[in-house]
Design a protein around this nucleic acid. Structure first.
Lengths: 348, 348
DNA sequence: CAACCACCTGGGAGCGCTCCCAGTTTCGTG
DNA sequence: CACGAAACTGGGAGCGCTCCCAGGTGGTTG
């Protein structure tokens, strides 16, 4: 109960534009101009406003701003995978770091959206395509995921991380996996191996396919048979199983290109279990140049992809699109390079 | 140029409440009531509104709503660490999964905020404490991080993941690291080891301290000296270096408790490099029960902590607080348990 | 010195929603 | 059958901001 005579304490909520204006002795409009760094404000006013903002600790109300500008100053990072796989993956960690770096300085927030296991994306699609975010970065593991395309079709600016298998025209950023596979094959050939196998990634992912195709190309360049192929998911156990399968089929193989370091680790385990020495009996090349590559013995020759750069580039591409920049490349391939270590010495 | 006579196409933006109301033949208010599941709407109206919403594909404008309710329906996940460490860490991945699970069904978005390397948190603190999110989950690696406390002091509901070192009263959820360390020590004692060392985590983190203190307690229970202590960060190399240090100081040690599986992996590497066999010469216990524990040979005895549960509990605690629930526990400790594998057999 | 322009400033309108209150209808009861 | 209560409904106000336009002020020019 407020008694007459009580000092009614002023609402101590966040200060508004209006209050800043009053404190600075100018109008709402002028404060707004200062905040948005628009021209047409005298030095004197600008300074008064800046001081008032400082002393009141004013922070613009994003909701109010968003209501009128129809921009949210946020972009979504959509991970369309049960999450188990993606987080904890050093590859993804690097991408995320790149995204963050690319976003810093743009005053935009990152809204993380994980696809629920039981969700068909309906919910998510509706949410995203109805103005809650300005754009979306979609990291799909499975290249045939329809989500990126559907979001783009709904008018939301989208950049995919990794080439979507369905050539849907969604702009994407990816590492040059084809060249990576090619480099690996060429390197193994150059070291003198001839019975070269590969453990490719899943056949329904672009990474799986592209690296495999690159390897095939390298094999055919050298006129070697390119039929020792096994597939594996990105896990140690998967890699081990695939290695076992290859050894059954091709007991005499002398080299293997694994489509990921983690797969290579599994291969190492299986080779060791069978008493095969690396690199003396079998040379091994990985992919990623993750921390794994240098943690195992022997340290892995591997194909390095610019992970952080990938995240940064995705973000740049999206922000540029949001800024309405013309002549943006529809998609971008980042270079991969071979890093030679002890797992692939030249044969004596 | 719009010529007179041109059919001016109606703005095809997202439909508004007003339009839904018109389509359903009711008022704005009634539609609002339906959307917010408030009582006091006849079945007939409710149905008409539902149909209209469906057919127009209406999605509420969060900004407008947020402007008046002063709620944003989003919570921040603050990772106050350069990110390099945190993402890619399977521990964090599990926590994140738990957070997501805890959030699903609450209609709240997760806004990811990584602390920039060069930032002192000023920016972040200002942003967070001025109404941009309803609450924050703070995952700090370093326990003396002032951020959780400062956010809470600014009036933002905050739950910390991991015990903040400065006993600032911020509610937190953590694994029972003390008991974990205790269990590890007791187990090693029970298997017949007597010269037991530990590689603790960093001394400025609660995990480092609590696990160490638990181990010390276990050692003193058994009237064993608890002075073979080295510290390490959470990395393979750090673990190896610490192991080396311990072996210099205590050449005859027969067991080591590493405060993390990744540290244990480093220890294994160093032991192997020095020709010491695990478990014959030295028994090893890890912590986390991460995928690492079962990837190495021999598979590690380790202390399991309920990682996903941790994330879920943090989220639950925060949402409960936001909902204004009374009698919330200020902080919560989740149980840890020992998982025995081949790295710690009883001595013959 | 009138006329003009460039520069700056302030206030009104309105973004889409929730909340409040006043009205209207419907129903149960004496 | 009248009356009050309960159930439902609709419109106004206003959240804090941006955008637009109508002014005001000063300086330059013919």
């Amino acid at each position: 109960m407020i008694e007459p005579g009580d000092a009614v304490v002023e609402d101590r909520g966040a200060p508004t534009l209006e209050e800043v204006a009053r404190a600075a002795g100018v109008s709402r409009s002028t404060v707004s101009r200062v905040i948005n760094e628009l021209p047409g404000v005298s030095g004197r006013s600008r300074e008064a406003v800046t001081r008032a903002i400082e002393s009141l600790g004013y922070v613009p109300n994003e909701a109010a701003r968003s209501l009128v500008t129809r921009r949210t100053n946020s972009v979504a990072l959509v991970v369309s995978e049960p999450g188990d796989r993606v987080f904890g993956d050093p590859f993804f960690a690097g991408v995320l770091r790149g995204i963050h770096a690319g976003l810093s300085g743009s005053r935009r927030q990152l809204v993380l959206m994980l696809m629920a296991e039981d969700d068909d994306g309906e919910q998510l699609e509706k949410y995203l395509s109805s103005g809650h975010v300005d754009g979306a970065l979609v990291v799909s593991m499975h290249g045939d995921d329809p989500l990126p395309h559907r979001l783009a079709a709904a008018g939301l600016p989208v950049v995919a991380g990794g080439r979507p298998l369905s050539g849907s025209g969604v702009p994407y950023v990816d590492a040059d996996n084809f060249t990576g596979g090619l480099l690996a094959a060429r390197h193994l050939v150059a070291t003198g191996r001839t019975r070269i196998a590969t453990i490719a990634g899943p056949g329904d992912m672009a990474v799986g396919i592209d690296r495999l195709v690159g390897w095939r190309r390298g094999m055919s360049e050298a006129r070697l048979a390119a039929d020792a192929v096994a597939h594996s998911d990105f896990s140690v156990d998967g890699g081990a199983a695939a290695m076992a399968e290859l050894l059954e089929r091709q007991p005499g193989l002398d080299a293997v290109f694994a489509a990921a370091d983690i797969i290579a680790v599994g291969a190492l385990r299986e080779l060791s279990a069978r008493g095969l020495r690396v690199p003396e009996d079998v040379a091994v090349v990985g992919f990623d140049d993750s921390v794994l590559a240098t943690s195992v013995t022997p340290r892995l020759t591997t194909v390095r992809q610019p992970v952080e750069e990938l995240g940064r580039t995705m973000t740049w591409r999206l922000l540029a699109q949001l800024a309405g920049e013309p002549h943006l490349p529809p998609s971008i391939l980042l270079p991969t390079e071979l890093v030679v270590r002890e797992s692939t010495p030249p044969v004596a």
